[in-house]
Design a protein around this nucleic acid. Structure first.
Length: 267
DNA sequence: CACTAAACCTGGGAGC
DNA sequence: TGCTCCCAGGTTTAGT
């Protein structure tokens, strides 16, 4: 489900609500969701939530000691005082009676406890450039070290963090680049277009509350609106808004990719 | 080393 | 109505 704009909206919707809350109990319905499940309760109960941060698609809940690292994968949701149902796998109860639940239809998401050193090591090895903070030269250097198709490299979280299947397709369309275009053949002008579109599209999507295709809602249960702005994602067979020809669908790096064969020609 | 397929799961939609 | 098949905002691991 969630890519950078969605994860960012989860955090923005929750940070004021849960900061300062003291965790007094955790109901673990589905232990598989948690990595260090044996010690998890002992490590987390009685800690206070300091704040929420995002790195790529990861949610970091900073505690008075240590951190919760959460990845929502496809259908994970963090909900503040949300509805407990058969997809609720985790429930953090606070001293004041409020609570935070982790719901996930497909159970792909993961939650773990990491101390500050472990968190830093993990993020440094797994998570690449932050789109809103990266400068052009580091973006170019890191991307041009990769081989193969540009779409595969945009989805590589160790290069740029936070781009998923929706925004990769939207970014490539906005940049006029075919998803199978070889990264090594990108021109300087292509790189500039990509850099600008990555930042602009993710920022606009974040402001719109993210994209809700099916499941996504923020921490208060509110859907996003950016799906109304999508130009290619999920629109195979429809007309290109720019040239009017039919959008096509191919598989790249195992993911469905929609593009305009005229506006995104392989040069 | 690089790329692909399978695995992890459940549910919605299309087609029959 | 109901069954089967395909597909899904992601990542890791096993296999070629």
């Amino acid at each position: 489900m969630p890519e950078l704009p969605e994860v960012e909206n989860v955090i923005r919707s929750l940070v004021k609500k849960v900061s300062g809350k003291i965790i007094i109990n955790i109901e673990i319905v589905t232990p598989n969701i948690i990595y260090n499940r044996m010690e998890f309760k002992d490590l987390v109960i009685s800690k206070t939530i300091v704040t929420l941060l995002r790195r790529g698609k990861y949610i970091i809940i900073k505690l008075s000691e240590g951190n919760l690292l959460i990845h929502l994968r496809m259908t994970g949701k963090l909900l503040y005082n949300g509805e407990v149902n058969k997809h609720t796998h985790l429930r953090f109860k606070f001293l004041d009676g409020d609570y935070l639940i982790y719901n996930d239809v497909r159970k792909f998401g993961r939650v773990s406890y990491l101390n500050n050193d472990e968190l830093e090591v993990y993020l440094n090895t797994k998570v690449g450039l932050e789109p809103g903070l990266m400068v052009f030269d580091e973006f170019k250097d890191k991307l041009m070290k990769k081989t193969g198709a540009i779409k595969k490299n945009l989805l590589d979280q160790t290069v740029i963090a936070g781009i998923g299947n929706i925004y990769a397709d939207e970014i490539l369309f906005a940049s006029g680049i075919h998803p199978l275009f070889e990264t090594k053949n990108l021109l300087e002008s292509d790189l500039e277009n990509l850099y600008n579109n990555i930042r602009e599209i993710l920022e606009e999507a974040t402001i719109a509350g993210g994209s809700t295709i099916r499941d996504y809602v923020n921490g208060e249960g509110a859907a996003g609106a950016y799906q109304d702005t999508h130009k290619v994602y999920g629109k195979s067979g429809k007309e290109c808004i720019s040239c009017g020809c039919k959008l096509e669908k191919i598989k790249v790096a195992g993911r469905t990719s929609v593009f305009c064969p005229i506006c995104q020609r392989i040069r």
